[in-house]
């Protein structure tokens, strides 16, 4: 028979050992994991402008093609700029901005609570003499976050390419958003209608052909069985791009 004292001591020792093992594993592996996350973000950004990067080449290609990183505020003004390996404006490197925190700040302000003004990052890529504007996206899918990057051509209305990622959407259903056939549909779609109003690109259940002809430029085919993920992608694209409308206006006017 085991005494209560034995059980208490046994569990305490067990918990301490487990805590030590897990925390040392976590801190030992953290640098490698963070590097993975960094490289993945760079790979994503490069993929959105159709540059083929893998884990080993991502960093070099990123430094070569991404000529400028900017962060803009709600008024569309550039508040941070990082170019050529140097911080030119502001004190945060746009690459390091955590979109989730910025969205949280934005939500706090919307709810009438106190928060710092959010800033949103933007990456400018130069490829074959043309400029592309890459906007990071973050939203909610069915089981967890979905994210992505959308690259716009220099007219800031035509989509050049997109990439999507997700934490844990259903394999074979919602998870298909991260596959090429789904993403390729976005190429060449437009963000503004003829009158110049912002019309976000929607994932359309039943297929684009069900839309009226003048809307087909703003839609892509949804994945069957992935309705909630599709809706999440819709909301994500609309909500994230809205933050850049002022910037786009200013940029086109200048």
């Amino acid at each position: 028979m085991y005494s209560n004292k034995y059980i208490y001591i046994y569990s305490s020792v067990m918990v301490i050992i487990v805590a030590a093992v897990l925390s040392s594993a976590a801190s030992l592996l953290k640098p490698v994991q963070e590097k993975n996350i960094r490289t993945e973000k760079m790979t994503d950004i490069l993929h959105s402008v159709h540059l083929d990067a893998d884990r080993s080449t991502a960093e070099d290609l990123y430094n070569k093609y991404i000529i400028r990183e900017e962060a803009i505020n709600a008024g569309g003004e550039v508040v941070c700029r990082f170019a050529g390996g140097q911080q030119e404006l502001g004190n945060v490197r746009p690459f390091e901005i955590n979109l989730k925190e910025e969205q949280h700040k934005q939500q706090m302000l919307l709810d009438g609570k106190e928060a710092e003004a959010p800033v949103f990052p933007l990456f400018i890529c130069e490829k074959d003499g043309k400029e592309y504007f890459i906007i990071p996206l973050l939203g909610k899918g069915l089981w967890g976050p979905v994210w992505g990057h959308i690259a716009l051509e220099s007219d800031l209305r035509t989509v050049y390419g997109v990439v999507f990622g997700h934490k844990g959407e259903t394999p074979g259903l919602g998870a298909e958003i991260s596959t090429l056939p789904f993403q390729e549909q976005f190429d060449g779609k437009t963000l503004f209608d003829e009158a110049g109003h912002f019309t976000s690109i929607r994932v359309v259940k039943g297929g684009v052909q069900t839309l009226p002809p003048d809307q087909q430029n703003h839609g892509v085919d949804a994945i069957s069985g992935g309705t909630i993920t599709s809706n999440g992608v819709n909301d994500m694209i609309r909500d994230c791009l809205e933050n850049y409308l002022e910037y786009i206006k200013k940029h086109l006017a200048s």
Binding site: A25, A26, L29, V32, Q33, N36, E40, W143, G144, G165, K167, G168, P171
Partner: peptide
């Protein structure tokens, strides 16, 4: 999970919650 995230990042993303 931690080891997969560090050394088999692609696979760990696929398995995620599982």
């Amino acid at each position: 999970d931690q080891i997969l995230k560090a050394f088999a990042y692609e696979v760990s993303k696929q398995l995620s919650v599982f």
